[in-house]
Amino acid sequence: MISAHVTTPKLVVSWLALLVLTFLSFGTSRLGLGEAELVIALAISVVKTLVVLFIFMHLVEQRFANRLIVILTFLFIVLLVTLTVADPLTRKTFPPRPDPAASPYP
């Protein structure tokens, strides 16, 4: 059942990696990249989460069933967020509307 062991050095390396990623995230936020910033920050967060999941939470050594739960959780959150946020984002752009009265938001 156990394919890969989590060892003390691995834990330490993961911890350091998490700290580095945190400062990387902090650093990019100071660059003033605008919209891209959020995407980068979230991408870094996802990487950090994967580190926590696989090493700290020992997901590497666990059965597929447990991994499936994680996959489903991520999938459903992504789904909930995208399909929900697609609504306000496409209200004005699909179909493109020339007249302002039809746009619900000024």
């Binding site: 059965r63 069933a65 447990n66 739960i69 994680v70 959780t73 459903f76 909930l80 967020v81 946020v85």
Partner: peptide, 23 residues
């Protein structure tokens, strides 16, 4: 397994709020 499922459920609780945030 039960703990992982509980965590998945718990995460969706926050997931709803992330959706509100994104919206």
């Amino acid at each position: 397994l039960a703990m992982w499922m509980f965590l998945g459920s718990e995460t969706l609780l926050f997931g709803a709020l992330f959706a509100v945030y994104a919206y």
